[in-house]
Amino acid sequence: MSNILNPVSIRSIMVLFIFLLFSISSQAGELKKAENFTLKDYKGKSHSLTDYSDSKAVILMFIATRCPISNAYNPRIVKLYDDYHNKNVVFIGINSNKLEDVEEVAEHAQKNKFMFPVLKDPNNVIADKYDAQVTPEVFVLNSNLEILYHGRIDDSQREDDVKTNDLRNALDEMLAGKSVSNKEIKAFGCTIKRVNK
Protein backbone atom coordinates (compact mmCIF):
# COMPACT_ATOMS: atom_id res chain seq x y z
CA MET A 1 0.00 0.00 0.00
CA SER A 2 2.73 2.42 0.94
CA ASN A 3 4.41 1.67 -2.38
CA ILE A 4 1.32 2.56 -4.35
CA LEU A 5 0.63 5.83 -2.60
CA ASN A 6 4.12 7.21 -2.23
CA PRO A 7 4.55 10.99 -1.70
CA VAL A 8 5.15 11.60 -5.42
CA SER A 9 1.92 10.00 -6.53
CA ILE A 10 -0.03 11.68 -3.70
CA ARG A 11 1.33 14.99 -4.93
CA SER A 12 0.36 14.25 -8.53
CA ILE A 13 -3.12 13.15 -7.46
CA MET A 14 -3.47 16.43 -5.53
CA VAL A 15 -2.32 18.42 -8.56
CA LEU A 16 -4.74 16.55 -10.78
CA PHE A 17 -7.58 17.08 -8.31
CA ILE A 18 -6.92 20.82 -8.06
CA PHE A 19 -6.68 21.03 -11.85
CA LEU A 20 -10.02 19.21 -12.28
CA LEU A 21 -11.68 21.36 -9.65
CA PHE A 22 -10.40 24.49 -11.35
CA SER A 23 -11.48 23.41 -14.82
CA ILE A 24 -14.98 22.45 -13.60
CA SER A 25 -15.49 25.76 -11.76
CA SER A 26 -14.19 27.84 -14.65
CA GLN A 27 -16.54 26.02 -17.05
CA ALA A 28 -19.53 26.59 -14.78
CA GLY A 29 -19.00 30.34 -14.59
CA GLU A 30 -18.38 31.13 -18.25
CA LEU A 31 -21.11 31.92 -20.74
CA LYS A 32 -20.63 31.34 -24.44
CA LYS A 33 -20.61 34.51 -26.48
CA ALA A 34 -22.82 34.85 -29.56
CA GLU A 35 -21.82 36.74 -32.66
CA ASN A 36 -23.63 39.85 -33.85
CA PHE A 37 -25.23 39.66 -37.30
CA THR A 38 -27.46 41.65 -39.63
CA LEU A 39 -30.31 40.06 -41.56
CA LYS A 40 -33.45 41.30 -43.29
CA ASP A 41 -36.93 40.33 -42.15
CA TYR A 42 -39.62 39.32 -44.63
CA LYS A 43 -40.64 42.98 -44.99
CA GLY A 44 -37.11 43.88 -46.11
CA LYS A 45 -36.13 45.67 -42.87
CA SER A 46 -32.60 45.01 -41.55
CA HIS A 47 -32.08 43.85 -37.97
CA SER A 48 -28.80 43.60 -36.07
CA LEU A 49 -28.50 42.09 -32.60
CA THR A 50 -26.77 45.28 -31.48
CA ASP A 51 -30.01 47.19 -32.25
CA TYR A 52 -31.44 45.52 -29.15
CA SER A 53 -28.69 46.20 -26.64
CA ASP A 54 -31.16 48.02 -24.35
CA SER A 55 -33.35 44.95 -23.98
CA LYS A 56 -33.07 42.48 -21.12
CA ALA A 57 -32.87 39.55 -23.51
CA VAL A 58 -33.14 38.65 -27.17
CA ILE A 59 -34.72 35.31 -28.03
CA LEU A 60 -33.54 33.93 -31.36
CA MET A 61 -35.87 31.23 -32.58
CA PHE A 62 -34.85 29.06 -35.52
CA ILE A 63 -38.21 28.11 -37.00
CA ALA A 64 -39.55 26.63 -40.22
CA THR A 65 -42.67 26.98 -42.35
CA ARG A 66 -42.97 23.28 -43.29
CA CYS A 67 -41.62 21.38 -40.26
CA PRO A 68 -44.54 19.83 -38.33
CA ILE A 69 -42.68 20.07 -35.03
CA SER A 70 -41.88 23.75 -35.52
CA ASN A 71 -45.48 24.35 -36.59
CA ALA A 72 -46.79 22.55 -33.50
CA TYR A 73 -45.08 25.30 -31.51
CA ASN A 74 -46.59 28.30 -33.38
CA PRO A 75 -49.40 28.96 -30.87
CA ARG A 76 -46.97 28.50 -27.98
CA ILE A 77 -44.52 30.96 -29.54
CA VAL A 78 -47.33 33.52 -29.89
CA LYS A 79 -48.24 32.98 -26.23
CA LEU A 80 -44.61 33.39 -25.16
CA TYR A 81 -44.41 36.64 -27.12
CA ASP A 82 -47.65 37.89 -25.50
CA ASP A 83 -46.37 37.06 -22.02
CA TYR A 84 -42.84 38.44 -22.29
CA HIS A 85 -42.53 41.18 -24.92
CA ASN A 86 -43.74 43.80 -22.42
CA LYS A 87 -40.96 42.76 -20.08
CA ASN A 88 -38.29 44.14 -22.40
CA VAL A 89 -37.66 40.75 -24.00
CA VAL A 90 -37.17 40.82 -27.78
CA PHE A 91 -38.39 37.94 -29.96
CA ILE A 92 -36.77 37.26 -33.34
CA GLY A 93 -37.62 34.36 -35.63
CA ILE A 94 -35.02 33.10 -38.12
CA ASN A 95 -35.74 30.92 -41.10
CA SER A 96 -32.58 29.24 -42.48
CA ASN A 97 -34.20 26.50 -44.57
CA LYS A 98 -33.05 26.65 -48.16
CA LEU A 99 -36.40 25.56 -49.60
CA GLU A 100 -38.49 28.12 -47.71
CA ASP A 101 -38.22 31.45 -49.50
CA VAL A 102 -38.98 34.90 -48.15
CA GLU A 103 -42.53 34.95 -49.62
CA GLU A 104 -43.30 31.69 -47.85
CA VAL A 105 -41.81 33.03 -44.61
CA ALA A 106 -44.00 36.16 -44.89
CA GLU A 107 -47.15 34.15 -45.54
CA HIS A 108 -46.39 31.78 -42.67
CA ALA A 109 -45.72 34.63 -40.22
CA GLN A 110 -48.93 36.43 -41.17
CA LYS A 111 -51.03 33.28 -41.05
CA ASN A 112 -49.74 32.46 -37.57
CA LYS A 113 -50.07 36.09 -36.39
CA PHE A 114 -46.43 36.44 -35.43
CA MET A 115 -46.05 40.00 -34.11
CA PHE A 116 -42.25 39.73 -34.01
CA PRO A 117 -39.84 39.97 -36.97
CA VAL A 118 -38.96 36.77 -38.82
CA LEU A 119 -35.61 37.07 -40.59
CA LYS A 120 -34.61 35.17 -43.69
CA ASP A 121 -31.13 33.68 -43.40
CA PRO A 122 -30.02 33.17 -47.02
CA ASN A 123 -27.51 30.32 -47.43
CA ASN A 124 -27.96 29.43 -43.71
CA VAL A 125 -24.98 31.62 -42.77
CA ILE A 126 -26.35 32.44 -39.31
CA ALA A 127 -27.50 28.86 -38.65
CA ASP A 128 -23.90 27.84 -39.36
CA LYS A 129 -22.47 30.56 -37.12
CA TYR A 130 -24.72 29.51 -34.24
CA ASP A 131 -24.49 25.83 -35.12
CA ALA A 132 -28.29 25.63 -35.06
CA GLN A 133 -29.35 22.22 -36.36
CA VAL A 134 -33.03 21.81 -35.73
CA THR A 135 -36.37 23.63 -35.81
CA PRO A 136 -37.56 24.82 -33.41
CA GLU A 137 -34.34 25.70 -31.57
CA VAL A 138 -33.96 28.80 -29.41
CA PHE A 139 -31.11 30.90 -28.07
CA VAL A 140 -31.61 33.40 -25.25
CA LEU A 141 -29.00 36.16 -25.32
CA ASN A 142 -28.39 38.93 -22.81
CA SER A 143 -27.40 42.47 -23.79
CA ASN A 144 -23.72 41.42 -23.87
CA LEU A 145 -24.67 38.77 -26.46
CA GLU A 146 -23.90 36.01 -23.99
CA ILE A 147 -25.92 32.83 -24.44
CA LEU A 148 -28.04 32.33 -21.32
CA TYR A 149 -30.03 29.41 -22.70
CA HIS A 150 -29.92 27.24 -25.80
CA GLY A 151 -32.23 24.44 -26.85
CA ARG A 152 -35.86 23.43 -26.74
CA ILE A 153 -38.92 25.54 -25.90
CA ASP A 154 -40.40 22.86 -23.65
CA ASP A 155 -40.30 19.09 -23.21
CA SER A 156 -43.06 17.92 -25.59
CA GLN A 157 -44.23 18.70 -29.08
CA ARG A 158 -47.70 17.90 -27.74
CA GLU A 159 -48.80 20.92 -25.79
CA ASP A 160 -51.03 18.87 -23.47
CA ASP A 161 -48.09 16.68 -22.43
CA VAL A 162 -45.72 19.50 -21.50
CA LYS A 163 -44.24 19.05 -18.04
CA THR A 164 -41.34 21.50 -18.08
CA ASN A 165 -41.41 24.88 -19.79
CA ASP A 166 -37.67 25.25 -20.23
CA LEU A 167 -37.65 28.53 -22.17
CA ARG A 168 -40.12 30.13 -19.75
CA ASN A 169 -38.08 28.89 -16.79
CA ALA A 170 -34.93 30.39 -18.29
CA LEU A 171 -36.67 33.74 -18.95
CA ASP A 172 -38.20 33.86 -15.46
CA GLU A 173 -34.85 33.16 -13.85
CA MET A 174 -33.16 35.77 -16.02
CA LEU A 175 -35.84 38.40 -15.26
CA ALA A 176 -35.53 37.63 -11.53
CA GLY A 177 -31.81 38.39 -11.77
CA LYS A 178 -30.81 34.79 -11.18
CA SER A 179 -28.47 32.75 -13.33
CA VAL A 180 -30.23 30.27 -15.63
CA SER A 181 -30.00 26.81 -14.05
CA ASN A 182 -30.39 24.71 -17.22
CA LYS A 183 -28.34 26.38 -19.92
CA GLU A 184 -28.74 23.78 -22.65
CA ILE A 185 -31.52 21.24 -23.24
CA LYS A 186 -31.97 19.32 -26.52
CA ALA A 187 -35.10 18.00 -28.22
CA PHE A 188 -36.15 16.25 -31.43
CA GLY A 189 -36.92 18.48 -34.38
CA CYS A 190 -36.58 18.80 -38.15
CA THR A 191 -33.11 19.25 -39.58
CA ILE A 192 -32.40 22.74 -40.89
CA LYS A 193 -32.15 22.18 -44.65
CA ARG A 194 -28.85 23.73 -45.62
CA VAL A 195 -27.41 24.68 -49.00
CA ASN A 196 -24.68 22.43 -50.39
CA LYS A 197 -21.29 23.97 -49.81
Binding site: E137, R152, D155, K186, A187, F188, G189, T191
Partner: peptide, 19 residues
Amino acid sequence: EKQEDFINRLNEEWQGALP
Protein backbone atom coordinates in the same frame (compact mmCIF):
# COMPACT_ATOMS: atom_id res chain seq x y z
CA GLU B 1 -37.99 9.29 -19.61
CA LYS B 2 -36.11 12.34 -20.90
CA GLN B 3 -35.70 12.86 -24.67
CA GLU B 4 -32.46 14.69 -24.02
CA ASP B 5 -30.93 11.62 -22.35
CA PHE B 6 -31.70 9.56 -25.45
CA ILE B 7 -30.15 12.21 -27.72
CA ASN B 8 -27.01 12.48 -25.60
CA ARG B 9 -26.73 8.70 -25.22
CA LEU B 10 -26.44 8.42 -29.01
CA ASN B 11 -24.11 11.38 -29.47
CA GLU B 12 -23.32 14.40 -27.29
CA GLU B 13 -22.87 16.56 -30.39
CA TRP B 14 -26.26 15.71 -31.83
CA GLN B 15 -28.88 18.42 -31.25
CA GLY B 16 -31.82 16.09 -31.97
CA ALA B 17 -32.38 16.96 -35.63
CA LEU B 18 -33.93 14.12 -37.68
CA PRO B 19 -33.07 11.95 -39.46
